[in-house]
Design a protein around this nucleic acid. Structure first.
Length: 570
RNA sequence: CGGGGCGUAGCGCAGUCUGGUUAGCGCGCCUGCCUUGGGAGCAGGAGGUCGGAGGUUCGAAUCCUCUCGCCCCGACCA
């Protein structure tokens, strides 16, 4: 590709709207142009990077035995009504009517459409297993799009759907995708972790997320320092540990705590550690109030609570709602004599002589004890894991890191096949629901994540597999015939040797070319200038390290070939 | 949707509080000269209904009302 022929509108200055590095660099390097909130045009260079990811994804999906197809973006509402998601999905699903007043929507995902295909075309166990995938633009009317391609409303996604005869067979399909995903992200040259994940609204029994490690990640993941365990913090189990508390149980006493409502102020007032207090949080779960007992210094993990309750919506109650539900002003709630449904984090059940709200304004209870003073039916793991907690798998220490979710695989089971009646016949003639799995990769997000993870002050440092062009020839003097011919020759030879080569043939000053080359992140830069006239050598510079080497013009192809091979192995 | 911020040339901004000449600056863009191994210099030039509508005023980018859009913090997700 010639710079003179491709539209890459680079920017010297950082556009004001961009907050995170990948967004800034994508704008500066002319990858994308925003049309409206969360919706972007992919300009030629940005699209080229996206194609790189797509090709890797395609190759690995095909290798794993999946078949590519392409489903419609506009979908009839009936399908979504059948699966029950038309009402459940919420405002993220963009709905509209066509000219015939038919209810329609833009596909945020394609379980309904694929299940419709399956029920029409797959009838026998002989047809199974099947895994179908597509790479397509999705539309989700996000509450708040942000960070450029990281969370757009329109984005490119690879989604795959597997169909199997049984749970065990579905697990085999799942495992194949698990392997394929590991290969994909490894091939992309990304540092990532596969973690246990919450399956969220798509539903299903278990799932894994693939997280690119980057400080700007929107998710927190817990990683074991010794074993291979890793999980999304939302899902990460807090292992019950032996407290060894053998403190003598004492009588409960009621104490006055005028105006002391927050854990911190109550503890200070009573001179106790927050770990000796049990706080009572009130949530509104699908409209119903629920109390949660948690040690004073702990944080609730709402996803765990949500899953336990099996509700779609969970949020903290406000002061008014708390009073309406319990008759107690917030800050003085406690488990003793409470009237609403109560959940307790299992840590709480091991505590003795702790402090709780007295369910009476300006009073708390001290030396309260589980079993004697109150009891709770529902005990579970409801708190957020901390770095001080042990690995739930091996007991060793863990750490928390930020990650960008680039892939998510789910074992769906028969939710969709049953609600949409996608059945097959087994060898004995029984009608059985197809067992499904679904597997997503945020293709456009992968590019953003790659940049987030690979950049420096000068610009992007493309991992070799994702770079639109592996090497850029920089012609420093268009007017010098000797230099220009040499540059053109190298460019032609690289192209003929099968490389995706780039040549900066613009009539601009050297500094401009160097700055743009750095910004655009070509892995290798081959500079042809006056040094060539002096001694027939060109400079080859590696973007990642900045190391340079002078190479005779006849050696360039061999040199580049060797370097790219080395990197591929490394 | 709740909370905050911003809309002035392609990009980054000043001017708005305290109304008053032809609305500025840097970068980018066009022309010419010059220059050519890290975003050069000089000269000339194009480009604005100051987001939009209404109002107040002799006079509005500036004050008032309404409206549209974008960004940031929270609930959602590849």
């Amino acid at each position: 590709m010639r710079y003179s022929q491709i539209l890459i509108p680079t920017l010297k200055e950082v556009p004001a709207e961009a907050e995170i590095v990948s967004h800034q660099l994508m704008l500066r390097a002319g990858f994308i142009k925003q049309l409206t909130a969360g919706i972007y045009t992919y300009l030629p260079y940005g699209l080229a990077a996206i194609r790189r990811v797509e090709n890797i994804v395609r190759e690995e999906m095909n290798r794993a035995g999946a078949q590519e197809l392409l489903m419609p973006m506009v979908q009839p509402a009936d399908l979504w009504q059948e699966s029950g998601r038309y009402t459940k999905y919420g405002p993220e699903l963009l709905r509209f009517k066509d000219r015939h007043e038919r209810e329609s929507c833009l596909g945020p995902t394609h379980e309904e459409v694929i299940t419709d295909i399956a029920r029409k075309e797959i009838h026998s166990y002989r047809d199974l297993p099947v895994n179908l995938y597509q790479i397509q633009t999705k539309f989700r009317d996000e509450i708040r799009p942000r960070f450029g391609l990281m969370r757009g409303r329109e984005f490119i996604m690879k989604d795959a759907y597997s169909f199997d005869v049984s749970d065990e067979a579905a697990e085999t399909s799942y495992r194949k995708m698990y392997v394929a995903y590991n290969r994909i992200f490894t091939r992309c040259g990304l540092e990532f972790r596969c973690v246990e994940a919450d399956s969220g609204t798509i539903g299903g029994s278990f799932s894994h997320e693939f997280m690119v490690l980057a400080e700007t990640g929107e998710d927190t993941i817990a990683v074991c320092n010794d074993c291979s365990w890793a999980a999304n913090i939302e899902k990460a189990e807090v292992k019950p540990f032996e407290t060894g508390e053998n403190e003598e149980i004492r009588d409960m006493v009621k104490v006055e705590t005028p105006g002391k409502r927050k854990v911190e102020t109550v503890c200070k007032f009573l001179s106790i550690a927050p770990a000796r207090l049990v706080k009572t949080l009130v949530y509104i779960a699908d409209g119903e109030p629920v109390a949660l007992l948690l040690r004073g210094d702990r944080e609730a993990e709402e996803v765990k609570v949500k899953n336990h309750l099996g509700v779609a919506d969970l949020r903290l109650a406000d002061d008014t709602e708390i009073f309406e539900a319990t008759g107690v002003p917030s800050g003085f709630l406690g488990p003793v004599g409470i009237t609403i449904r109560v959940l307790a984090d299992r840590e709480v059940t091991r505590m003795v002589n702790f402090t709780v709200g007295a369910n009476e304004k300006n009073f708390h209870l001290q030396q309260a004890n589980f079993g004697r003073d109150f009891s709770v039916e529902e005990v579970g793991d409801f708190r957020r894991l901390t770095e001080a907690d042990p690995c739930p798998s091996c007991g060793s220490s863990i750490r928390l890191v930020e990650g960008i979710e680039v892939g998510h695989i789910f074992k769906l089971g028969t939710n969709y096949s049953e609600s949409m009646r996608a059945y097959y016949q087994d060898a004995d003639g029984n009608e059985l629901p197809l067992v499904m799995g679904c597997y997503g990769i945020g293709v456009s997000r992968v590019v953003a994540a790659a940049i987030e993870q690979n950049h420096d002050a000068s610009g992007i440092i493309f991992p070799l597999p994702l770079a639109p062009y592996q090497a850029a020839v920089v012609n420093l003097d268009l007017k010098d015939r000797e230099v220009s011919e040499a540059a053109e020759e190298i460019y032609t030879e690289l192209t003929e040797a099968g490389f995706d080569a780039f040549i900066d043939d613009r009539d601009v000053r050297p500094g401009v070319k160097f700055k743009d080359a750095d910004l655009l992140g070509f892995p290798y830069r081959i500079t042809v200038g006056k040094r060539f006239k002096e001694n027939g050598q060109v400079e080859i510079r590696r973007r990642k390290t900045g190391e340079t080497e002078d190479v005779a013009i006849g050696e360039v192809i061999a040199y580049i070939t060797r370097r790219l091979e080395d990197e591929r192995v490394a």
